[in-house]
Amino acid sequence: MRRNIFITLQSFAEYSDVPLLLLKNAGVSIRLNTRKHRLNQSEIIELGEDSDGIIAGVEPYDKMVFNKLLRLKCISRCGVGIDSIDLKEAERRGIAILNTPDVVVQPVAEMTIAMIFNLLRLLTYHTNLLKSGEWRKRAGHLLKGRKVGVVGLGRIGKRVAEILGSLNAYVYGCDLKVDSEWLAGNNIKILSISELLCEVDVLCLHVSVSTDNTFFLGKKEMAQLKKGAIIINTSRGQILDEGALYESLVSGHLGGAALDVFGEEPYSGQLVELDNVVLTPHISTLTKESRIEMETQAVENILEYFDVPYECPPLLNMNQK
């Protein structure tokens, strides 16, 4: 039986032919997202009506979508987050949900560290001054000796903590379930969230959105942070009150913030007005290398689920475009 695979990603195989070649060589039927934007429920239903499997981004899959996609058996997420999928409804219907959690660790960790350095050394601040014709200097801070809190010690949080430790920062962690074996090999001090907020100079958020995890950084929590503390969020926009963050930055209580994720995307809120904020359009995992690997793994996952044999393309095709 020839399987119909719908690829909902806005762009696919942009940096390498490998993911598409895997699908073509496996003999499956392929449909691409021709709209070139993040699909809504109606568009998913319209374009994916006869799909057996979907290679998905972060578009929503709820009961309404599942009611219409009667052939759907597998969603292979290109990335790690699956909070846009109604997992209970998928389980009830026997729809498999797969993802690529390991690929995103290094790119998101690197992005987090880059954002910390940007704010501590005022890189964007000084760039904007120079672009406006001003040659003016303001002293920043070393990362060495700074107290950095990592909220969420999953794959990404652990990697961030490891890198921070290697750069001689004092690292504090907080999680619902701490990996004791990993902790034994790393110099990380575990605190409650209230203790951590009061202690750190830099707060890094690596929290997933789930029914088990109700973490939210609001006005009350921001008030607990030290004066001049900075916040980094590369996880989920829903876990942070952007209005409260704006107020805390304008008042001078917080020293800066760097966000790659937002409650509503594309973002066009008040934070764009501030010069002590670094804002990026959800690009933490967007490196050519990680994108190729994520897409390739998402393809392999869905082919293996349907027990479709495949062969890796020649190494020549692994090169980036």
Rank of each mutant, 00 (worst) to 15 (best):
G185N: 15
Y172R: 09
A161G: 10
A184M: 09
V148Y: 06
A184K: 15
V150T: 04
K158E: 11
R159M: 02
V171E: 12
S180G: 00
L167W: 01
V151I: 14
K189V: 14
V160H: 06
L176K: 01
G173P: 08
L176E: 01
G149P: 13
V150K: 05
V150Y: 09
V151N: 01
L183S: 10
K177H: 11
L167P: 10
D175A: 14
S180A: 15
N186T: 03
L176R: 03
G152F: 01
V171C: 13
G165F: 07
G154F: 05
G185W: 02
S180P: 00
V171F: 13
I190L: 13
G173E: 07
I163A: 13
L153G: 08
R155A: 06
Y172W: 14
G152M: 04
N186M: 05
V171W: 13
S180M: 15
N187P: 11
V171S: 10
G154P: 14
D175Q: 03
I163Y: 11
V151P: 00
G154K: 10
W182H: 14
K158A: 09
V178G: 06
A169Y: 09
L167C: 05
L167N: 08
A169L: 07
R155D: 04
S166T: 14
V160P: 12
I190H: 03
C174K: 04
V148G: 14
K189Q: 14
G154V: 06
A161I: 05
N168W: 12
D179Q: 04
S166W: 00
Y172T: 10
V178H: 02
I156N: 08
D175M: 00
G152S: 11
N186D: 09
I190A: 05
A184W: 00
G149K: 04
I156C: 04
L183Y: 07
